[in-house]
């Protein structure tokens, strides 16, 4: 049961941290349409976070609801992968991060619709159309940025090169993931990675971008609570109110 709680928390943490990052662009998007899109994607991810946290809290049975899980944990308790906490950077950085995430998220959620856990399958089914829309959008933008101007191409290629080493952690399974695969709760890493690589290769090729080697060295640690310095700043802003006024409610 503890493995499932941890697995659900990871799903929630990945969605929440990326959602918080995207929310920071509200009112600062490079164009009005992008501003709305980023915040709408953030909203979808926030909704999914609540569903994962709600289930995790119920299974855990320790009285932690979605708000406690989001606001009353410190950086080492968060188990999101390092990719999600990478800074927004320029717009190419934001969109490459999003595309790497969306491609993994899509294949993961497809796999989770077949989960042996009916509630996880239901949450995945609810999320799938949202996640599909996100991936179509971010893939489309990568092509437009990569196959755009010289400047947009250069910035997008730089972002791909920079973020590539954070793209592999989602496929680096540990004891928690392995237990979930064994129970039929979660899809295996190999199949997901093959699908991810194929789709990313297709989009990057269409975007006239060079894909770094699939066997490149990859950063790890987020899943185990070892984070980059970025997460502390993200949480400091997200959790400010609860840290300043513990237990405050609307």
């Amino acid at each position: 049961m503890q493995n499932k709680v941890n697995y659900l928390l990871r799903l929630g943490d990945n969605a929440l941290i990326l959602s918080q990052q995207l929310s920071q662009l509200c009112g600062r998007g490079p164009a009005l349409e992008e501003d709305m899109a980023l915040t709408n994607v953030a909203l979808d991810l926030l909704g999914q976070t609540r569903l994962w946290y709600e289930y995790a809290g119920e299974l855990e049975g320790a009285g932690r609801d979605e708000d406690k899980l989001a606001y009353h944990r410190d950086a080492h308790d968060f188990k999101n992968c390092l990719l999600m906490e990478q800074p927004n950077g320029n717009y190419a950085d934001t969109m490459v991060r999003q595309f790497f995430f969306d491609a993994w998220h899509y294949f993961l959620i497809v796999g989770l619709t077949r989960s042996s856990d009916a509630r996880i399958a239901a949450i995945a089914e609810k999320s799938l159309k949202e996640v599909t829309y996100h991936l179509r959008r971010s893939g489309d933008l990568i092509v437009r940025l990569g196959d755009g101007t010289e400047v947009s191409h250069a910035k997008t290629q730089a972002a791909v090169n920079e973020l590539w080493m954070y793209s592999g952690e989602v496929f680096a399974y540990d004891a928690v993931d392995d237990a979930m695969v064994a129970e039929g709760v979660a899809p295996a890493a190999d199949g997901l990675r093959t699908q991810w690589l194929a789709h990313v290769a297709e989009i990057l090729a269409e975007a006239t971008l060079t894909m770094p080697p699939a066997d490149a060295w990859m950063q790890k640690g987020g899943k185990q609570g070892r984070h980059s310095e970025h997460l502390g700043y993200i949480l400091a802003e997200m959790q400010f109110l609860q840290r300043a006024y513990p237990g405050a409610t609307w």
């Binding site: 619709t113 077949r114 159309k129 599909t132």
Partner: peptide, 23 residues
Amino acid sequence: QVIDISGLRAGVGADGALAAISR
């Protein structure tokens, strides 16, 4: 028509899943 995801749960392979996201 809505995005067709009906086949996913039934176990359509990677091809079926990819059709939904192909540009």
